[in-house]
């Protein structure tokens, strides 16, 4: 009876001690467990920031063409603006030749997406496409070598090709810059064109939106 009583008297104290012991153990483990995820998240955050900072730097300077605002920008590898030029871009209109005679149709829009400067040309030669003859009401030359297809001076002093038939070139009518009126090419003023010709290298990306 006495032993039983002693045992019974020891129960509250024992339970208290057991719980305190449990708390100490749990507290340490919980503290470790709770700091670990946060520390891991912070480490992950730093890693992501570092990776982002490294990947955010562009491989080369690049051109951006805003077809809505009719603006061309040159940005450096850290995305800083180096030059802004007022431009004229595609009119986004559809043009069809005489349906009895010509079955072609064109949509004069500047394409959007990622391109790159393919080549730079000084004193470019304009090879007139079929739609030009249809627009001005002239007979379309049958042969590609027909001398009526070639004209110099109309594209300005330089041309920077970003697709097979599409380029950044100059214009005789700078008053039309800032408008969506071209057949798909990007026209800029003479000073801006010279700057781009001298400072943009072949291979640099051209982003059009």
């Amino acid at each position: 009876m006495n032993t039983h009583n002693i045992g019974r008297r020891g129960t509250p104290l024992r339970s208290f001690c057991v719980l305190v012991g449990l708390w100490v153990v749990t507290s340490y483990s919980v503290t470790d467990a709770s700091s670990s995820p946060e520390e891991a998240l912070k480490q992950e955050h730093l890693r992501l920031l570092g990776e982002l900072s490294a990947s955010r730097r562009a491989a080369s300077p690049y051109l951006v063409v805003d077809t809505r605002g009719n603006v061309v920008q040159l940005r450096d590898r850290d995305h800083r603006l180096m030059r802004t030029a007022v431009a004229a871009t595609g009119a986004a209109r559809r043009f069809e030749g005489d349906k009895k005679k010509w079955k072609w149709s064109w949509r004069f829009a500047t394409p959007t997406g990622r391109f790159r400067i393919l080549r730079k040309v000084s004193d470019p030669l304009w090879v007139k496409p079929d739609w030009h003859f249809l627009e001005v009401g002239e007979e379309v030359p049958v042969f590609a070598e027909d001398p009526r297809r070639f004209q110099r001076g109309i594209l300005g002093s330089y041309a920077l090709y970003f697709a097979k038939d599409l380029m950044i070139h100059g214009t005789l009518y700078e008053i039309n810059l800032g408008q969506s009126i071209t057949h798909g090419c990007v026209r800029v003023g003479a000073e801006d064109l010279q700057f781009f010709y001298e400072n943009v290298d072949v291979g640099w990306p051209v982003y059009i939106y």
């Binding site: 955010r56 491989a59 690049y62 951006v64 805003d66 990622r114 990306p205 982003y207 939106y209």
Partner: peptide
């Protein structure tokens, strides 16, 4: 901000 790839467009 509008991006294409890593390029800042707007």
């Amino acid at each position: 901000r509008l991006y294409h790839h890593t390029a800042l467009l707007r």
